[in-house]
Design a protein around this nucleic acid. Structure first.
Lengths: 221, 221
DNA sequence: CGGCCGTTTTTGACTTGTCAAATAAGAATA
DNA sequence: TATTCTTATTTGACAAGTCAAAAACGGCCG
């Protein structure tokens, strides 16, 4: 069984390669950056993970998950997301903080416990941030969504928030910007990089900068 | 903060010194045995824990927890026992298996989560095996109980089971021998080392050997 | 008192995961 | 083509935990 260190590498590589065409490789530098490690450390580990069959490492090219690594990574993701939902739904923790908690717990829960949680939550398909939860079979289907920052005026459904920063999440909830919310992009000022939003059920319109809107993935209504 | 390795040492030392008069020291050998390590490894770690102020290590004498180590150990125990109860009560896991799970989780749960669990369970005083759960203040009160193996004929209340082996626990439950059960020691054969028991509500009497009865701690009815 | 035995301690080595700094390779620029 | 820039890789070192085996204690028995 992979150590929790290995699980973290695999999870990160999976995240980094999501959205890229399947043939694309992830560079050591990006992994180092994401995990807050030095590049040399990552190189060493990549060679190790290649030897273990988790991935294919080509020097100066990058890294690509092999089936074994893909499976392991998806299972970690499944754990992580189920735990987040569990913490929110059952333990009533604030959605702004569950990511950090899940980061630790994902390496400590046995399959038995994960299965119970899954059952208890009714085999959910999405976590509190709108991220899809892979099934026990390891199937992860990512819907293609658009960042709100790239949308033009119109009405959208907020589906997913791809940022874990607690302060940001707290602010979002205060604005009613939670997955499932219906949000109207009333106006955008491309030069200033600011969008004017209104959330259905919310009192007033408010402004949001392009970077902050980039973490919000929406579906056209 | 102590690493989970350190937490395990402290927890074990606490367990080993429970029941001993406060002045008594725990020997490295027993710690090594309990943790399945070589004696040399334990010696090394004891010197380290002494330097860190968790305990007092006197070469060739043994080891005694200092307040700092005692506090840390009790907190681990609290986590462990709350988790066990949580797994049984909320997640409906079998009491035979929750110990192993808790062993892992006790190092991964944040204070925030532990507090929520405690609240959710109504600030419980005992875990599924009848072990007392220390309060958040670090107070652990152990009631003095007698092993059933040292009792004479009579009626007793089973309060606590001090063995974690899943098979043993499963067998126990099949016999109705769970904390809170009223059990009658009908007869004992000291030469053969066998006791004849009857559990209130159970159909028939059954036999149990002295070692197995020694893990059952009872209160006189 | 002397020797033996069981327990501790010491020593040297190994594993995992990490960093810092020197080096190498490619890519971009001149 | 030569130079420079960026990104990767290598190297040597370190910290935490661990073991195996040799050495040192300290009691107990004769």
């Amino acid at each position: 069984m992979p150590t929790s260190t290995v699980e973290n590498y695999l999870k990160t590589i999976l995240r980094l390669s999501a959205g890229l065409e399947p043939a694309a490789m992830v560079s050591p530098g990006r992994i180092a950056e994401a995990l807050n490690l030095t590049p040399g450390t990552v190189t060493t580990m990549m060679k190790h993970l290649d030897r273990e069959g988790y991935l294919r490492y080509q020097p100066r090219q990058g890294v690509r998950l092999r089936p074994k690594g893909q499976r392991a990574a998806v299972q970690v993701l499944r754990r992580h997301r189920l735990i987040e939902l569990f913490l929110v739904e059952i333990l009533r923790l604030d959605w702004a903080h569950v990511h950090e908690e899940a980061e630790l717990l994902e390496h400590a829960l046995s399959d038995r416990v994960v299965e119970r949680i899954d059952e208890m939550l009714g085999r959910p398909a999405y976590d509190p941030h709108g991220d899809p939860i892979p099934g026990a079979d390891g199937v992860l289907r990512e819907e293609r969504l658009r960042p709100l920052s790239e949308c033009s005026e119109g009405v959208y459904e907020l589906v997913r928030v791809v940022r874990e920063d607690p302060e940001y999440l707290t602010w979002l909830r205060e604005q009613g910007l939670v997955p499932g919310a219906q949000v109207t992009l009333e106006m955008r000022d491309r030069l200033a990089g600011i969008l004017l939003l209104k959330v259905r059920g919310g009192k007033t319109s408010f402004r949001i900068g392009e970077p902050a809107a980039g973490w919000l993935l929406v579906r056209v209504c």
